[in-house]
């Protein structure tokens, strides 16, 4: 008798935990051969809310962590992903990629993570400035994370799009709520498992599966989300997001980048999602006394 295979349950990832959607709803996307990819959580508005709460809670310790340490943690993600390469290749193939493309995508994803791991303790030196003001003050500007960032992953990319959008944002000390590609969700959930087994603190990256149409309005109107990164291609959806963002003056960044390109990475993906803070302090000039004795 052949052994019965264990089928994986795909859950969402909130605050370092793998709950099922609180709504109890599922959807079953199919691949191009008509095969059901799995029973995927159809996350609700409340799941979005919970994810934002988790992300907000995580922001303090993540943003204040030593940049060097953030770099180590990001590098650890790459290590974990390398170890589970086969599973990602398999899932990508199941979702419709060729073996070659799947392998290339996973390799690129690993390399991209390593790339951003290296940026963690370097971008600050490039984007900061010391400003030579005319008065007797020391004046400098530094980059600070914007806070909780919502990320809408491109529909056509399961892994590399997600990695390319998420990594620079967390590299810069933000925490994120990610809406995975609706119809290619497998790698997103498995990636969450990678995160879980690396040293990324719970809540830094939260990943939700489900209907982007349903979740995006909640995420883009949420008053405790500071910025949104839109990786999709639908101009109407982007417009809606931008309109919703007005509620609390969210910053919205939209990228129409082909993430499978080796050079689809860079400092600006980090620095876009940074605030610049400028600090002034007086400089006391004393001295110059001379004696006439």
């Amino acid at each position: 008798m052949s052994r019965l295979e264990i089928v994986k349950t795909y859950k969402i990832y909130i605050g370092g935990q793998f709950p099922r959607t609180e709504s109890g709803r599922y959807y079953s996307p199919v691949n191009k051969d008509g095969k059901v990819l799995g029973n995927i959580c159809l996350s609700s508005r409340k799941d979005v809310r919970n994810a934002v709460v988790a992300a907000r809670k995580a922001i303090g310790s993540w943003s204040e962590r030593a940049a060097f340490n953030r770099g180590q943690i990001l590098y650890r993600i790459a290590e974990m992903l390398e170890g589970r390469k086969a599973q990602f290749v398999e899932e990508l193939q199941f979702q419709g990629s060729s073996k070659q493309a799947a392998e290339a995508e996973v390799n690129l994803a690993i390399d991209r993570i390593v790339y951003y791991a290296g940026w963690c303790d370097k971008y600050q030196a490039i984007v900061s400035s010391v400003n030579p003001v005319a008065s007797s003050h020391f004046n400098f500007s530094v980059a600070e994370p914007m806070g909780v960032v919502g990320i809408i992953v491109p529909e056509n990319s399961s892994l590399i799009g997600l990695v390319s959008l998420v990594l620079p944002v967390i590299c810069g000390g933000n925490t994120v709520v990610v809406l995975a590609a609706e119809n290619l969700p497998l790698c997103a959930v498995t990636f969450a498992e990678v995160l879980h087994s690396s040293d990324v603190p719970g809540g830094v990256i939260n990943i939700l599966t489900g209907s982007t149409k349903e979740m995006t309005p909640t995420l883009s109107t949420h008053m405790d989300v500071n910025a949104l990164v839109y990786g999709g291609t639908d101009p109407l959806e982007l417009k809606e997001i931008q309109e919703n963002a007005v509620l609390n003056v969210k910053r919205v960044f939209a990228y129409l980048t082909d993430w499978t390109k080796a050079d689809a990475q860079g400092l600006h993906f980090i620095s876009d999602v940074q605030e610049i803070k400028t600090i002034w302090h007086p400089i006391e000039n004393v001295g110059g006394a001379t004696s006439n004795y």
């Binding site: 008065s135 003050h137 007086p282 006391e284 000039n285």
Partner: peptide, 8 residues
Amino acid sequence: TIDKVGVE
């Protein structure tokens, strides 16, 4: 304490 720049 006195901040000299403020005094200036």
